[in-house]
Each structure stands twice: as structure tokens, then as C-alpha cells.
Design a protein around this nucleic acid. Structure first.
Length: 151
DNA sequence: GCCAACGTTGGC
DNA sequence: GCCAACGTTGGC
């Protein structure tokens, strides 16, 4: 999962009550589908800072609540308001995630670009814009190893 | 700030 | 259904 640290960072997540937050604001159908259909309780999530210097994978979170309607989508005052989404017929969905581990050292994109095992990772593909995207087990394990982290 | 790589909208 | 125009993402 991607986020711009200027708007919401892993440290913000660490400060949350129970280190848990709802992942609202996703307004892309493919990303929504991954959250709505694929993310299950206990699934692990790589936490990525985009538009950062350098862009980095900074930790691991865990899904603690499965798909439910993103209620910010029918809040007229919310930046991500969508008039086509209503409580009766929600268009956008989200999950709750809980911080599991912040990496001792962030894994910067330049460093990751040198790792052969990650050459096919969707995140590393040029033009990859999906804010919620799948990660293979091999990629996930490679990342943990690079971060010198065990869960 | 630039721009490539998207996804969405809407005219036809 | 096609596709041009437009808006957004996000690396650099």
C-alpha cells in the first residue's frame, strides 16, 4: 500500500490508537478491487512512501478488518467525496490495517532497483501507479530479508 | 518543475 | 465502441 508521507506516514500510523487505521480515500477501481476482494484478515502489507526522497518501503502492516464501505466517499466535506457513492449503494471500499513493524532502516527505491529478485515486482515497474497492489511471497520475503526483519 | 504513464470522461 | 482531451500519479 502506498501513501505520501506528507499526508499520512508510517509514523502517523504508529501514533494511532491501537496502531490501526482505515485505509480511506482510494478512488481507483483496480485498487478498490484488491481491497474489497483479496485482502483478508491476517494478510501482511508492505507500507510504501511515495513522493518521498527517496521513495521507500518503510515497514509492514497487517489487515485487521476486511472490506467495508469507505464512508468518506459520501461525506461532502471530504476531499475524496464522490457523489455517485451513497450509504445505500457504496462504490468505494476500504480495509483496516495495523502497524506490525516499522523497518529499522527504510528500503529506498534506488537500492531496491538493484535487487534482481525484485525485477518483476509491480511496484518497481516504470509507470506503476496502483496505490494498492499485490506482492508475491518471494518478493515479500526478499524485502523482509533486505530489511533484516523477522516477524 | 517536468513529463511519462497511466485512468477517466464524453463527444461522436 | 473509439479515441481525443483531460486529470492524476509519482519518479526524477
Amino acid at each position: 500500500m502506498k501513501t505520501e508521507p506528507d499526508s499520512y506516514s508510517i509514523d502517523d500510523l504508529a501514533k494511532e490508537k491501537k496502531k490501526t487505521t482505515f485505509w480511506s480515500g482510494v478512488r481507483n477501481y483496480q485498487a478498490r478491487n484488491f481491497m474489497r476482494d483479496d485482502m483478508k484478515n491476517g494478510d501482511l502489507v508492505l507500507f510504501y512512501h511515495s513522493n518521498a526522497d527517496p521513495p521507500s518501503i518503510v515497514g509492514v502492516a497487517e489487515v485487521v478488518k476486511e472490506s467495508y464501505p469507505d464512508f468518506t466517499s459520501w461525506d461532502e466535506n471530504d476531499h475524496h467525496y464522490d457523489p455517485k457513492s451513497t450509504p445505500e449503494n457504496p462504490r468505494w471500499f476500504m480495509v483496516d490495517i495495523k502497524l506490525k513493524k516499522k523497518f529499522p532502516e527504510a528500503l529506498g527505491r534506488p537500492q531496491l532497483a538493484d535487487v534482481k529478485a525484485l525485477s518483476d515486482m509491480e511496484l518497481m515497474r516504470k509507470g506503476s501507479r496502483l496505490s494498492v497492489q499485490p506482492v508475491t511471497k518471494k518478493e515479500f520475503d526478499t524485502i523482509l530479508k533486505l530489511a533484516s526483519v523477522t516477524l
